[in-house]
C-alpha cells in the first residue's frame, strides 16, 4: 500500500505524526529512552514555568499581561473546583491544576507545525484517567467508608427500580476512565489527522491548493477551540468525579 501511494505521488500519511522516535540515535525505545514524548512533555513543562512562574515574577498588585493570564487560569480552575466540589474539593486543587495545565499546554503545543501531541496517545490519557479513577475511588472510601456505595443506590428512585439503577450506575462508574481517556486522545488524534490529510491534499495539488489551505485554516481554528475545550472537559469531569467521591449522597 505504501508503495502504491508512493507511485501515485499522493503521499498522505496522517498517522506518521504520532509515531514515537528516540531523540538520540536509532536504538530501541525502552521505558526510560528520551523520545519525542520526552521532548514535548518537557516543552510543556517549560511552558508551565513561562506562564505561571515567569509570568507572575512581578507579583504586581496591578498585573502585567502575562501575570493576568496566569491569574485568569488560576481563577478559572480554582472557581471550577470550588463551584463543583465545594470547599472540601479545594484541597485537591493543585492536582486538578496540574492536570489542566499539562493537558491544555500539550494540546495547544501539539498544534504547532511539526510538533508532537503527547495527549493524542491513549497511553497518556488512559494513565491520567486511571490515576483520577483510582484516586477518586480511594478518596471516596476513605472519606465516606461504606457510605460511598450510596453513590450507586439512588434513594430518590422508586424502590423496585433501585437495583437496576445500581447496576447501571456501577457499570457507568467503571466506564468513566475509558470514556474519560478516549474522549481526549480521540479528539486530539482526529483533529491533527484531519489537518494532516488536508495538508497532504495541498501538497498534492501544488500551487492551486487554495481549497485545502482554506480548509486547513478552518480546521486549525476549530482545533484550537477543541484543544482548550477538551482540556476543560477532562478537568471538569475530574472535578465532577471528585465531587462524587466527596459527596456521594445524591
Amino acid at each position: 500500500m505504501a508503495a502504491e501511494e508512493a507511485g501515485s505521488g499522493f503521499n498522505i500519511h496522517p498517522m506518521d505524526q504520532f509515531v514515537i522516535t528516540p531523540l538520540f540515535g536509532d536504538g530501541p525505545i525502552l521505558w526510560y529512552t528520551p523520545t519525542n514524548v520526552t521532548l514535548w512533555m518537557g516543552i510543556a513543562v517549560l511552558a508551565v514555568i513561562a506562564l505561571l512562574v515567569l509570568g507572575t515574577r512581578g507579583r504586581a498588585i496591578v498585573p502585567s499581561r502575562s501575570q493576568s493570564i496566569a491569574e485568569e487560569i488560576y481563577g478559572f480552575v480554582h472557581k471550577m473546583t470550588e463551584d463543583i466540589a465545594g470547599k472540601e474539593g479545594l484541597k485537591y486543587f493543585p492536582y486538578i491544576m496540574t492536570l489542566f495545565m499539562f493537558i491544555v499546554l500539550s494540546n495547544v503545543l501539539g498544534l504547532l507545525p511539526m510538533s508532537f501531541t503527547t495527549t493524542s496517545h491513549i497511553a497518556v490519557t488512559a494513565t491520567m484517567a486511571m490515576a483520577v479513577f483510582i484516586t477518586v475511588t480511594i478518596i471516596g472510601f476513605v472519606k465516606n467508608g461504606a457510605g460511598f456505595l450510596s453513590l450507586f443506590w439512588i434513594s430518590s428512585a422508586p424502590l423496585p427500580l433501585r437495583p437496576i439503577l445500581a447496576l447501571i450506575e456501577i457499570i457507568s462508574y467503571f466506564v468513566r476512565p475509558i470514556s474519560h481517556s478516549i474522549r481526549l486522545a480521540g479528539n486530539m488524534m482526529a483533529g491533527h489527522a484531519v489537518i494532516k490529510v488536508f495538508a497532504g491534499f495541498a501538497g498534492a495539488l501544488g500551487v492551486g491548493a487554495v481549497a485545502p489551505i482554506v480548509a486547513i485554516m478552518a480546521v486549525y481554528g476549530l482545533e484550537l477551540l477543541v484543544t482548550v475545550i477538551q482540556a476543560y472537559v477532562f478537568t471538569i469531569l475530574t472535578v465532577v468525579y471528585l465531587n462524587d467521591a466527596l459527596h456521594p449522597h445524591h
Binding site: I20, L30, T35, A44, F102, T118, A123, T127
Partner: peptide, 12 residues
C-alpha cells in the same frame, strides 16, 4: 511504546 510514554508522563 506504552511504558516509555507512561514513564515520561509521570515524570512530567
Amino acid at each position: 511504546w506504552f511504558s516509555n510514554q507512561i514513564f515520561w508522563l509521570v515524570v512530567t
